[in-house]
Design a protein around this nucleic acid. Sequence first.
DNA 1: TATTGTTATACTCTATAACTATA
DNA 2: TATAGTTATAGAGTATAACAATA
Lengths: 163, 163
Amino acid sequence: MKGEAILEEEAAPRAADGQEIDLSKLTDLVGYQLRRAQIAVFDDFIRSFAPYDIRPTQYGVLTAIESNPGSSQAAIAQSLGIKRSNFVKLIDEFERRKLVVRKPVAGDRRANALFLTKAGQAELAELHQVRAAHEARIAALIGDERDRGALLKQLQRLTTMRG
Amino acid sequence: MKGEAILEEEAAPRAADGQEIDLSKLTDLVGYQLRRAQIAVFDDFIRSFAPYDIRPTQYGVLTAIESNPGSSQAAIAQSLGIKRSNFVKLIDEFERRKLVVRKPVAGDRRANALFLTKAGQAELAELHQVRAAHEARIAALIGDERDRGALLKQLQRLTTMRG
DNA sequence: TATTGTTATACTCTATAACTATA
DNA sequence: TATAGTTATAGAGTATAACAATA
C-alpha cells in the first residue's frame, strides 16, 4: 500500500515548483486537524481581543475569578492548568491594570484571595461581548446548536485522554 | 442574568477550599475545549513518540518529506506553517541523525531539495505504526468511522477561520 | 527586484528548583 | 512535614530583521 519510488543518492531532485505539497497523510489525523483548528480559532480570538490587550489565557483567568471570587491563586491556577509559579506574573499584571486585587485570607495567612475590582468587572462585561461575537463566528461555521453541542462533547471526550 | 454578589473592599474573603472551582463559563466555549482537547491529544502523542525522540512537528515534517520527496525547504516549511528561518534547525537535526538529506536542485542553485535517507524511511515506517496506535486510542474515545469523519469535517471548517 | 537558505535575536509559554512564611 | 506565594532560570515555539547567493 506504500510503494512510492525511492529517490536517494544523486538522482536528479524534483525541484519545488511551489505549493503543490501533498499533506493528505497529515490532514487525515485528528491531532493534526485539532491543532490547525485550535490555531485558527485562537488567531480569531487574539485579533478580536487585541484592542483590549487581552490574551486567551488572561480571559480565562478573569472569567475564573469572576465565577469564583475569593478563591486562592493556587486554586484558580490549578483549575486552569497553570503552574503557580507562572501565575504570579499574570496576577501582577492584572493588579497593575487595576482589574484584580489580592486580599489576605482570614484563616490562612499564606494565601491570597483573588477578586475582580469594579473596573475589572466592567471590563470583563465588555470582554464577554467580544467573546459572544467570536463564538457567533464559530457557530456560523459549525452549524446549529445541535452540531455545536456534538462538537463540544467530542472535544470533551478527547480531553479525557489526559493522564 | 448575572447578578452575583459583589465582594470587594475588605469583605471577609472566602478562602480557597480546594478544587471546587466553577469553570462552566469556559467549558461551554469551543475555543477553550478545543485547546484542552489539543493539549490532551498532544500529550498522548508526545508520550507515544518519546522513545523515538520525535515531537509532533518533527513527525509532520518527516511525513511531508516522505509524501513530497525532492521538494524544497521553503515549500515544505510553508505547507506546514513553519517559518523558513525556524525550519533550518529542524532539518539540521534530521541531517545530524541521518534521517534526511539536503541535495542541490538542478535548475536552482539557491534551493535545497529534501529527501528521506533509507534509514529515515525505515524509521518513519516505525513511527507510522506508533501513530496508528495513537489514532486508535483517539478512535476509541470518539466513536466509529462516521463519528471520526464528522469530527474531522468540523475541525476543517474551523480551520477556514484562518486569515 | 525577488527568492532561498541562513543567522541572530526577541518574545511568549511552559517547566523545574529553590526560597520564605506560614500551616 | 506540607502548602502558598514567589523568584530565578531554562527550554520549547514562534516572530522579525538582515545578510549572501542566486534568480
